[in-house]
Design a protein around this nucleic acid. Structure first.
Length: 442
RNA sequence: GCCCUGGUGGUGUAGGGGCUAUCAUGUGGGCCUGUCGAGCCCGCGACUCGGGUUCAAAUCCCGGCCAGGGCGCCA
C-alpha cells in the first residue's frame, strides 16, 4: 500500500545539520531532511541532506556501505524527504569537517520530477515562478533567512511592548462600513449585510483608550484594495499598531524609536547567520533618529530640483530626493493638517500644522502616527471638514463622549520594516504568500 | 488605472517572415572511489492565447491574458 510507506514509526531525528561537526565523530546519528544534491561516482556516492539549520553530507563508499542502502540512495530524487541513520566520522574533505556513513535509509516521501523550480539556484527563477511554488522557494536558505529575521523582529517587538507595560489586543477585521474614507476597502458578504475587511485598527485602538487600558498594541493583518503595483505595496499586510493614553506625538515617537533600536540590536545579535546569508549589514542607527519638519522637507526637496508645493503629500520623486538627503531612519514631523486624517490633532494656535509624523527609512515610509484628537466636538468638526458624514462614525464617536483621555499612537508596516531589516528590494520577498494586485494564490 | 518593455523546453535564456529553433540547468539512461556549481557519453523536453496580413508567422499587425520596470493612487 503506497499510502502507508514512509512512516516515521520509532525513528526520530537526533541531530540537525548544524549539530553535525567533528565533535560528534564516532557516534550514531539520525538525520532527517530534504535531498539537496546527489553526486554519484559509482564507487562512492555523496548525498547532501538539508534541513532548516543547514546541510550535512552523507558519504557512501560502495565498499563500506551495504548494497541495499546504496540501492536506496541511488533511487533518491532531489528534494525528497529522507531519514538516514549512520555513523558520524571526521572528514577534513567534507563540509563542516564531518560526514555520515549511512547504515539505514528511510524514504519518508519521494519528490516528483521535474521540480517546478530549482531550490539549489543553479538557474535562478523569477519572482513569479518562485511565488507560484513558494514552499519550494522557502527551502532556500536565502529565502527562509528573511522569515527567520521577520520572526525575530516580531519577537523583539512583543518583548519590548510587554516590558513597557503594553497590553496586546485583537480588534475586528470584519467591519461594518467604509467610515474612514480615503483608501479603498474590500467588500465582503456578511450574511444579509454588506461588510468590509479592515484597512486599519485605528478607530478600535483609539476606542480602547476610552476603556482605560492605557497602552495597547496589536500585530495583525490589514487589507487595502488599492490597485497599486509597486515594489513596496501589498493588498494584505501586517500592521504593528500602538496607542498610548496620556501621551503626545513626542512620547510615541520616542517609543517607536526605542523599539526599532531594540529590533536592530536583537537582529544583529541573534540573526547574524541570516544577515550573512543575505549579505546584508544592518547599521546600528543613532540612539535618537533625526527629526525633520514638513516645511524643512519641502525646502530640501525643492533644493534637489524637485518641485513640491507646500500642502501636498510627497510624490515618489520627492520621497527619493528627501531620502537621498537624509538617509537612514528619520522622522518627518509637523505635517499640514489638511492632508492628514480627521483624527490627527492640529497644533494649538497654528491649526494649519498638525501633530502628525511619519517615520521614514531612506525614501520608504515605514510608519505614520500622531497625537489624536480626543475632544468629541473637534473630531466631529474635522470629520465634516473632510467631506465625511459624522453619522457614519456613531460607535466610534460614542467613545469620546464619556471620558476619552488625550492619546497618541502609530502604525508600522511590518513587511516594509522587514525590507529594511533584510535588505530586500521587493516587498513580496517579505511576505510568505503575498497578496498583490494580481496574485491571490497560493 | 497610465506609460515603457517583454512572454521560446520544468527553470533561466539566444534567435526574430521559410532553421532539424540556440545555450545552460534539469530530467531519463550509461561510465566513474573524495565530490562540494563534480566530469564525460547518449536520450527527452519549448515558440502565451485569439484574430489578421502573407505562398509561408515563433518572428509582422491588432486585441486579450500574464509578467518585469516606472508612475499615479496609498485616511
Amino acid at each position: 500500500m503506497n499510502n502507508l510507506q514512509g512512516l516515521l514509526k520509532d525513528w526520530r531525528r537526533t541531530n540537525y545539520a548544524n549539530q553535525c561537526n567533528p565533535e560528534i565523530a564516532g557516534s550514531d546519528v539520525t538525520i532527517m531532511g530534504w535531498v539537496h544534491e546527489i553526486r554519484d561516482f559509482g564507487g562512492i556516492m555523496f548525498v547532501i541532506i538539508r534541513d532548516v539549520t543547514g546541510r550535512v553530507q552523507i558519504t557512501a563508499p560502495s565498499k563500506k556501505v551495504e548494497a541495499e542502502v546504496l540501492e536506496q540512495l541511488r533511487e533518491l530524487r532531489k528534494e525528497s524527504v529522507v531519514a538516514i541513520k549512520g555513523m558520524a566520522q571526521e572528514a577534513p574533505k567534507a563540509p563542516n569537517g564531518v560526514e555520515i556513513l549511512p547504515k539505514e535509509v528511510k524514504v519518508l516521501n519521494m519528490a516528483n520530477q521535474p521540480l517546478p523550480m530549482d531550490p539549489t539556484e543553479k538557474v535562478k527563477a523569477g519572482i513569479d515562478t518562485r511565488l507560484d511554488s513558494r514552499f519550494l522557494d522557502i527551502r532556500k536558505e536565502n529565502v527562509s533567512a528573511i522569515f527567520k529575521i521577520k520572526g525575530q523582529m516580531f519577537h523583539t517587538i512583543r518583548d519590548f511592548f510587554y516590558d513597557n507595560g503594553f497590553y496586546e489586543i485583537n480588534t475586528p477585521k470584519l467591519v461594518a462600513s467604509a467610515t474612514e474614507g480615503g483608501t479603498e476597502l474590500f467588500p465582503i458578504a456578511y450574511f444579509d449585510k454588506e461588510a468590509f475587511l479592515g484597512q486599519s485598527p485605528q478607530l478600535y485602538k483609539q476606542m480602547m483608550m476610552a476603556s482605560g487600558m492605557d497602552k495597547v498594541f496589536e500585530i495583525a493583518q490589514i487589507f487595502r484594495a488599492e490597485e497599486h503595483d509597486t515594489l513596496r505595496h501589498l493588498n494584505e499586510a501586517v500592521s504593528i499598531d500602538a496607542e498610548v493614553s496620556f501621551a503626545d506625538d513626542e512620547d510615541v515617537m520616542k517609543i517607536l524609536n526605542d523599539m526599532l533600536v531594540n529590533v536592530i540590536n536583537d537582529i544583529n545579535d541573534k540573526c547574524a547567520d541570516e544577515l550573512e546569508i543575505l549579505g546584508h549589514e544592518l547599521e546600528i542607527p543613532d540612539e535618537k533618529f533625526p527629526h525633520v519638519t514638513y516645511d524643512e522637507a519641502v525646502e530640501i526637496v525643492n533644493a534637489h530640483g524637485v518641485e513640491m508645493p507646500w500642502g501636498e503629500d510627497l510624490s515618489r520623486e520627492a520621497e527619493k530626493a528627501l531620502g537621498d538627503e537624509m538617509g537612514g531612519f528619520y522622522f518627518l514631523t509637523e505635517w499640514p493638517s489638511e492632508i492628514k486624517p480627521f483624527y490627527v490633532m492640529p497644533k494649538d494656535g497654528d491649526e494649519k500644522y498638525s501633530h502628525a509624523f511619519d517615520l521614514m527609512y531612506n525614501n520608504l515610509e515605514l510608519s505614520s502616527g500622531a497625537t489624536r484628537v480626543h475632544q468629541h466636538d473637534l473630531l466631529v468638526k474635522q470629520i465634516g471638514e473632510r467631506g465625511l458624514n459624522p453619522e457614519g462614525f456613531g460607535t466610534y464617536l460614542k467613545a469620546f463622549e464619556y471620558g476619552m483621555p488625550p492619546h497618541a499612537g502609530w502604525g508600522v508596516g511590518a513587511e516594509r520594516l522587514t525590507m529594511v531589516m533584510t535588505g530586500s528590494e521587493n516587498i513580496r520577498e517579505c511576505a510568505l504568500f503575498p497578496r498583490d494586485r494580481h496574485r491571490l494564490t497560493p
